[in-house]
């Protein structure tokens, strides 16, 4: 079986911003974190995958199908959770579900009831009275109740307090393990992805900076810290996303052994987390 999601040279031009030849793919059964700063192009990419925006160039295949020509078939087999709720606030959750469910050929009422129960969602309450966390859980329940093979999630945890965010991620991780579906999860909160992502794709200024397995990424990049004087040596040439302060510098290196030799014990090397990698890529202007 091929990738569940494949983008090839996807380009979309706006006045003042271009999503530039974005390419990455996601294999079945994995969670891919899609990271980047605000305005980097995450939502634009997701809107293109969902056909909410028209492609200028490139190709998007979802579950092996063409995203434009086979849109309806794709949407039967994927679920989505966006950064904010797009459900009608004047309706109750039960009314909203009665409207949505008939559109899915594989709607599973029992699964839906199970998730509503699991997430402790009040069916008779108006969606306007739901907290943001409840709205996200409801969106997740809908997304998981039609046997979706791929979940597309755009910043689902933004605006949630840390407790609800952690609960949401726990639910997501458990559910994904049970349901065996793949997930593209965009977030600028990288700590969320530290917990659950198998792969990480980073977009910066409309271009893909990297798309790798999380382990590969954390092995490849090493955080280096040292005194400023060290920057007068060949060490500087090896640093990605250099950040200087009056006390010293910090950056990322890929060839630790070589830099360690050049630094001659005057630098400290640490394993970075995703946030540090993202920060150095963004602040250091690495593309």
């Amino acid at each position: 079986m091929g990738p569940v999601l494949e983008l090839k040279n996807v380009t979309k031009r706006f006045a003042g911003f271009t999503l530039d030849r974005v390419s990455f793919s996601l294999e079945p059964g994995y969670i891919m974190g899609f990271i980047g700063a605000n305005g980097a192009g995450k939502t634009t990419t997701i809107k293109l995958i969902m056909n909410l925006l028209r492609l200028d160039e490139g190709e998007i295949r979802v579950l092996g199908l063409d995203s434009r020509r086979q849109e309806q078939e794709i949407k039967q087999r994927i679920g989505f959770v966006y950064d904010e709720s797009y459900f009608y606030e004047t309706l109750t959750m039960a009314e909203m579900t009665r409207i949505i469910a008939p559109f899915y050929k594989n709607w599973d009422g029992e699964a839906y009831a199970k998730y509503v129960d699991l997430f402790a969602l009040p069916a008779r309450k108006k969606l306007a009275d739901f907290s943001k966390g409840m709205k996200m859980k409801y969106a997740l329940a809908v997304a998981l109740s039609h046997k979706a093979e791929l979940l597309i999630m755009d910043e689902p945890t933004s605006g949630l307090d840390p407790l609800v965010r952690s609960e949401f991620l726990d639910i997501l991780r458990d559910v994904i393990q049970d349901e065996r579906c793949s997930v593209l999860l965009s977030s600028h909160i990288t700590s969320d992805l530290d917990q659950i992502a198998d792969y990480v794709t980073m977009i910066n200024g409309g271009r893909i900076a990297f798309s790798k397995s999380k382990e590969e990424l954390l092995e490849e990049y090493v955080l280096i810290r040292g005194e400023r004087a060290l920057l007068n040596t060949a060490v500087r040439d090896h640093i990605l996303g250099l950040k200087e302060s009056k006390f010293g510098f910090e950056g990322l290196v890929t060839n630790k052994a070589e830099v360690e030799r050049l630094a001659q014990g005057r630098a400290v090397f640490e394993r970075p987390n995703l946030e540090e990698i993202m920060l150095h890529f963004v602040k250091g202007g690495v593309q």
């Binding site: 909410l52 309806q72 949407k75 966006y82 797009y86 459900f87 009608y88 949505i100 559109f103």
Partner: peptide, 11 residues
């Protein structure tokens, strides 16, 4: 409700 985004994401 910005419903166009919802309907165009559903099948």
């Amino acid at each position: 409700n910005n419903a166009d985004r919802l309907w165009n994401s559903l099948p």
